[in-house]
Amino acid sequence: MRLKNIKHNNPVKTPFRRKIQPYIYLSPVMILMSLLLFLPIILVIGYSFYDNVLVTPESNWVGLENYKYVLSDKVFLTSIKNTVVFVVFNVVFHLLIGMTLALMVNVKCFGRKIKAGFRVIYMLPWMFNATVIAILWKLLLNPNGVVNYLLMNFNLVSGPVEWLSERSIVFWVLTFINIWAGYPFYMISILAGLQGISSDLYEAGQIDGASAVQRFFYITLPQLKPILISIAMLDFIWTTQNFSLIWLLTAGGPSHATEMMSTYVYKTAFTSYQYSRASAAAVIILLACVVLAIFYVKNQTKED
């Protein structure tokens, strides 16, 4: 038997060529990533070590001075405290509301059309952008708005409440609005997770005599855990960076009552022209987000 002599079109690759080829293909993306992602981050980190940049003819190296200034600035410390409380409340309530609504629109006793209708209604806040949400809630919470009108008509308050101007309540009002704006993301993600849980598990649980509460805690929650961790971490990062809604509703005021790290950075950069201090504050936010991102990536890797 004669073996057919197969002619190879490709000459045998050298180990070096084999190694380098994937990087050539990846080079456009790598260059883009470097220019659009890493370069700005590196520049901002660099700026934070100078006295001021961009608007000064000369920049002098000051080491950690900007970090010292920012971390001893009462307004920045207030903004950190506000941001932490804002983020924690948002993540927790997004999770609770999202879970509750997802379970509600996933029950079997309703028809498909009813469930679809409720899903659309509950999804609405996610459809609006920050500007629309801000205008909507400003109109509702105006001292002469619908909310005060209803409260006064039902004799629940004696006079108009200044929801967005009263320093003792404005932070919680803002938190409430952001919770309202963000829960649908959780609801949809959890709903998708619920629909992916095998009904065999519930049937087996039922046969074993598990109650509805036990089935929730021993089947539903463990099955949803990877999704819950992922969306909670993403929400943590997104809420930390939230700027538009806060700026449009209160601009961080009155008197820093709703000052967040994002509004602090904006004001420091664009009205005080202290770009290095703003960079230092931004780097601190970046570090917080990087820590969370590492947890997120680790969690994702574990899932894989």
Binding site: E162, L164, S165, T250
Partner: peptide, 10 residues
């Protein structure tokens, strides 16, 4: 009421 966070347009 609401002057503290009232904008020009408001």
């Amino acid at each position: 009421p609401g002057m503290y966070t009232m904008t020009d347009a408001d």
